[in-house]
Design a protein around this nucleic acid. Sequence first.
DNA 1: AAAATCAACTAACAATCGTTAGTTTTGCAG
DNA 2: CTGCAAAACTAACGATTGTTAGTTGATTTT
Lengths: 189, 189
Amino acid sequence: MKTMTRKEEIVSVASQLFKEKGYNAVSMRDIAQAMGIKAASLYNHITGKQEILSTLILKVAYEFTSGMSSVLDKPTRPLQKIEDLIILHIDVTVNYSEGLAALNNDWMHLENQDLDAFVKMREDYEANFRSIIKEGIEVGEFKPRHPEVILFSILSTLRTLHLWFQKRGKLDVNVLKKDMVEVLIKGMI
Amino acid sequence: MKTMTRKEEIVSVASQLFKEKGYNAVSMRDIAQAMGIKAASLYNHITGKQEILSTLILKVAYEFTSGMSSVLDKPTRPLQKIEDLIILHIDVTVNYSEGLAALNNDWMHLENQDLDAFVKMREDYEANFRSIIKEGIEVGEFKPRHPEVILFSILSTLRTLHLWFQKRGKLDVNVLKKDMVEVLIKGMI
DNA sequence: AAAATCAACTAACAATCGTTAGTTTTGCAG
DNA sequence: CTGCAAAACTAACGATTGTTAGTTGATTTT
């Protein structure tokens, strides 16, 4: 782990507290105490509480957006793209697990442009995912099921991965990738 | 819809606000305003903000617990039990959609005995679910996949159903049940 | 009609919130 | 050493939080 700027430290410490109690239940004094300083000192490094949240969430959201771009750019078939996206989610979960909790639970506490930017990224991401599924059904690679149900099932699972990964940290990442792809794509029977 | 007591009205109104902004971002004055009264008047019917949350969450948690009991009592095979649990989740989602948001996002803000009771119900529920999956694998009804991954995939999907059900309310409930069972159990290819 | 209960109200409380201003300490470059 | 900037501090602000006390008017019970 490379050396962190003080601001990165604050965002990191805050993200752990946000994960446990949520954005609104964590005070600036809580964050400061976890860093061993006073709340007012935080303002030497950040402009306010909102900046912590938006820095945290938008960084992770960008990872998904750029990951989706990579997947779309490759000339692969729909099934391979879905597999790539599952791997993407697992990798982001492993590397940004703190930020994912905030992204999932506290995105609605973003404000103004940050909120708009996030919502747009999220909608675009879902739309791209949906298109891949629809194309897979059209070319006969997937069963002709309601695309919305497939999209919902996969995304729900992937979005809450961080909860399980921390609880059952014993799960080996590569085993998880393999089994997750199998279960999500081929089902359980 | 039968006539509500005033307390039930408060819990209902509060649950809608909790769903949008989360427990901590909703003030007693917000709840009162949504009911057309003053915050202090709420205390004629409830003992405090905590009671709203615990009433809301524990009612839904009990639905899952008793639903699980029914499924376990029937002398069916593991596959049928899983299908029954999927139906249970969809039914609870339709009938208690507001409470599910609080259960998923704000359970950690419960206190003392309420928190303990909830955590125990949740752990028991997951343990029962896990046992059914393991038995299904043992008797050869399910593929020999990591039980934890199957459990996680199904529960993640079912627990976030309420988010999608409100967004895409056009989805017919019976179509949803059929497709959801198919997708979760048989996969997408 | 009198008495009691209910459910609303006003007013205020102590605590905590995010944030600002002004000051002191720390650590490094010259 | 000296000087300077970075980063900590103390103290306080106005706003909001959940909650309590005491009161009023309406409705129900006796």
